[in-house]
């Protein structure tokens, strides 16, 4: 059956879950072709990889719309740099040549806010060790846009491309830290329900963390993906489906901070369904596991790294979650996570 896309695009189609994949597959990938030997758009990986001599040129692009623009732990500027740096890193491309940054601003937007965004963007570049080398600016009339929209693209080189579709049975699944921090902080703010507590985005550039892991174990890493929109569930589902494997998750082993867990209970939102902006899911060969964990935990961004599951040869795309009491399927989120009353 053709994937379902509604007559008019709803917000769910942009939320990173099943609805968004349906939209991309049935409209945007229609007729799309890739250069020979390249990992192109149809791969729906974190970025594209084009052969260049004996190396790979990796490219990625992402647009950023977030409400509110400033949130605990970060802002749209930091998000725009980290998102693109992390997408490159997930392809194994940590040798970053440069980034582009386009910005579209709504008429009437405060200059002070723009300066704040720009300062944060620059700070994130310095932290990640990357440079914005070109950009673009547009202003639209009031009401034609809500505040500000950013787009960044990145170009990097690597010797070996790491894909998201190459998990093998027996691989261990590692997450580089706590899950659900960014998404739950934003969901709590957006629900406007006055939740107060230590909720903050985890937005951070993973370049040096991933470089350390790849330097240490090389092909011991079989696949990577960053669990952004749609959360860990969506990223794992994609990895499993594309790799033709199934996954067994150890629920109690998934690191989740207390305030995130509490907010999840309060709003009825699954922590595995919301975005992370400074985490990676890594498929690791069993023999490399110990090294990977040691390298991750020695890095400030990997302190809470944990093994959360194993790759099995069951039904492709199926994720079985062991809750500690019993097993169940873990489903892909449908659309935007919203608080529920039942």
């Amino acid at each position: 059956m053709k994937p379902f896309v509604p007559e008019r695009i709803s917000l769910a189609s942009g939320a990173g879950g099943r609805a968004m994949r349906n939209l991309v597959e049935s409209i945007f990938l229609n007729g799309v072709t890739s250069p020979p030997g390249a990992v192109g758009a149809d791969a729906m990986d974190d970025g594209a990889a084009i052969p260049l001599g004996n190396q790979w040129l990796v490219m990625t692009t992402d647009s950023y719309v977030v409400k509110p623009l400033f949130f605990p732990g970060g802002d749209i500027g930091r998000l725009a740099i980290c998102g693109t740096v992390n997408d490159l890193a997930m392809m194994g491309a940590t040798n970053v040549l440069g980034l582009t940054c386009g910005i579209i601003i709504e008429e009437g937007f405060a200059r002070s806010d723009l300066e704040r965004i720009q300062a944060s963007l620059q700070a994130a570049c310095a932290e990640a060790g990357v440079h914005v080398v070109t950009g673009d600016t547009k202003v639209m009339a009031r009401g034609e846009l809500d505040g500000v929209v950013l787009n960044t693209a990145g170009v990097a080189l690597c010797e070996r491309v790491v894909r998201d579709c190459t998990l093998q049975p027996g691989d261990r699944l590692v997450v580089t830290g706590t899950v659900g921090d960014h998404g739950m902080a934003i969901a709590a703010l957006r629900a406007d329900v006055g939740i107060e507590g230590d909720l903050r985005s985890d937005v951070a550039p993973l370049r040096s963390l991933i470089a350390a892991v790849l330097n240490a174990v090389g092909e011991g890493v079989t696949a990577m993906k960053d669990p952004t929109r749609g959360g860990v569930a969506s990223a794992l589902f994609e990895m499993a489906q594309k790799s033709g494997v199934s996954l067994l998750l150890d629920g109690p082993a998934v690191p989740i901070r207390h305030p995130v867990r509490a907010t999840a209970e309060l709003l009825g939102i699954e922590p595995l369904h919301v975005a992370n902006e400074g985490k990676a899911l890594i498929g690791v060969r069993p023999e490399a596991l110990e090294t990977v964990l040691a390298v991750l935990r020695a890095h400030p961004l990997g302190r809470d790294a944990a093994v959360i599951g194993v790759v099995t040869s069951g039904r492709p795309g199926e994720i079985v979650l062991d809750t500690g009491m019993g097993k169940r399927l873990l489903h892909e989120p449908e659309g935007e996570p919203l608080p529920r009353i039942c």
Binding site: A188, V193, G194, I195, E196, G197, D198, L199, H258, P259, R261, A262, T263, E265, L266
Partner: peptide
């Protein structure tokens, strides 16, 4: 207080 977060 709900297990670490607060709300009205």
């Amino acid at each position: 207080d709900f297990w670490g977060v607060r709300r009205q």
